[in-house]
Structure formats: C-alpha cells, structure tokens
Design a protein around this nucleic acid. Structure first.
Length: 269
DNA sequence: CGACTTTGACCCGCGC
DNA sequence: GCGCGGGTCAAAGTCG
C-alpha cells in the first residue's frame, strides 16, 4: 500500500513539472518590456494569457497539496488498519493458548494435525513423548475394515511447522481418489526423511486451521501457533494482494482521476 | 444414532 | 522385580 501511495506521490511530482517547466511568464514579460511600443497591444494579450497560466498553475498546486493530504490520510488509515490487525492477531493467540473445556475433551471439529495422504485415518490414541513436547497421535486406516496400516504423527522437534508421519504396514485397498494424493507422488511438497524400518515422512502443516490466511476484507483471522514473526510477512502479503488486485488499482485510479478532475474544474464564481 | 475424538488406564518390552 | 516409556484400549463426550 505504502509503495502504491508513494508511487502516487511520485507520479504527481513528475506530472507537475511538465507544467512548471513552461517558460517563466515574468521572464517573458521582462524581456518583452524592452520592445517597442508597436507591440503593446499584443503584449497586453500575452500578459492576460500568462495570468491565466499562472492561475492554472496555482490551481494545480492547490490540487497537489490536497492530494498529498489525501495521500497522508490514506497512509494513516493503512497504519490504523495494520495496528488493528495486529491487535486482533494477538487477541486470537491469547484465546487459542487457553483452550476451553469443550475443546479439551470431546470432538472439537478441529483437526490440528492432519496429513493429507489420500487415506482416511481414525485416531485411536495420543501420548506425550519424552523427547518431544508435542504429543504423538496414533491413527489406524479406516478406509477398509481390516486394513492393518497404522500411522504415527508428531510435530517435528526442530521445525514445528512440519509434522513427522511414520507409517507401518501395507494398505490392502486402493487410495481414495477424492481425498488427496499419495505422499510419494511427484509434485507433492512432502520430504522423505525416514528410516528403512518404518517409512517416515516430513510434512508441512498444510491443514492447520490456525494457518495464517489473507482475506480481501482485512479479516486476518489467526496465525500459526508460536509463529509471531509472520506478522510483517502477512501484512506484506496483504499489501501485495491489494496492489495486485485489479479492482483495487482501478478503484484507486478512478478516485485519483476524480479528485484531479475536480481540482482542474474552472471555479464558478 | 453412527462416526469420530479425547484421555485416562492398561499392557508390554527393555534396561538396570 | 521395578521403573520408565511407548503403544493400545475403551469409556465418555461431541457433532452432523
């Protein structure tokens, strides 16, 4: 946004000199004042024309000042919106760090740790482990009644943005084509880092409901747990999305054009 | 009401 | 035998 606003300033600073670079009327007057009396009539006409030009320059200058004030107001609005966004984000982090009893027990509808691998899993246990503060979740494949495959999912100790998924056994059925892709399929963002005993996969937390999401109505709801450094990035993303939005740029251009047109209107006495 | 998650209790293997 | 840690079970609760 600020870049856009600055470019807004810049454009008008470039725009104005094309008028300001016109020959100085006073210089013209002084140079012509030494000419003979036979030019007096045309000189008077020139003087009036120069007065008109001076008036136009003054009008433009006033318009520029108003636009600069408008620019400043927009910049202020952006800062207010940014600070509100940060306050909302902090409030949300506080809320999510103190879960309600309803969330602590029973089905919450939220699945904080989900790995999309094309299979359906039923969680049957969760344990705190010694070497990792994040609990390990145990899943069984629920796509087939007798599928022996089990999966263990735990947040990566080094990088909590990743999940470690460990698979045991072999599926006795096909992958569900509607739910996703195989972990080993090309194009997937999955990184295999595992052992030979049980395949282990390192997976970005794609389905985390607290993942930052940028929406066009400034509804910056939520962020990744413990990831406070994303604020600037999110604002940058939002600004980028705004400046890339053709509707926004068109609307801004229309507003600027309207403002300029109003300033250039001859003032009716 | 079925499917699902949560969580405490229980089981089992391993090292001392 | 005991303690510890990992894995599993099953009752309780929630949601559509």
């Amino acid at each position: 946004m600020e870049n856009l606003l600055n470019s807004h300033d810049h454009d008008f600073n470039n725009f104005l000199p094309t008028f300001m670079d016109a020959p100085n009327p006073k210089q013209k007057v002084s140079s012509s004042s030494s000419s003979s009396c036979s030019f007096s009539c045309s000189t008077n006409k020139k003087l009036e024309a120069l007065k008109d030009e001076n008036f136009q320059v003054e009008t433009l200058r006033e318009g520029l000042e108003k636009l600069q004030k408008e620019n400043e107001a927009l910049r202020l609005m952006f800062e207010v919106m940014s600070s509100k966004s940060n306050m909302l984000h902090e409030a949300y982090v506080r809320e999510s760090s103190s879960p309600s009893p309803a969330i602590r027990r029973g089905f919450t509808g939220l699945r904080p740790e989900v790995v999309k691998d094309g299979y359906q899993w039923r969680k049957y246990g969760q344990k705190d482990t010694k070497n990792n503060p994040s609990p390990r979740a145990y899943f069984k494949c629920s796509m087939a009644p007798r599928c022996p495959v089990k999966k263990k999912v735990q947040r990566c100790l080094e990088d909590r943005a990743f999940l470690i998924a460990t698979y045991e056994g072999q599926h006795n059925h096909d992958v569900d084509p509607t739910t996703g892709q195989s972990l080993s399929s090309p194009g997937s963002s999955t990184v295999i880092s595992g052992t030979t005993m049980a395949p282990e996969y390192r997976v970005p937390v794609l389905d985390n409901p607290f993942r930052p999401c940028i929406t066009p109505d400034l509804n910056l709801s939520g962020s990744d747990h413990g990831n406070n450094n994303n604020d600037d990035k999110r604002i940058e993303d939002y600004v980028a999305s705004l400046t890339k939005d053709p509707n926004f740029t068109v609307a801004l251009e229309a507003a600027v054009a309207r403002s300029v047109a109003e300033q250039l209107k001859p003032s009716t006495p």
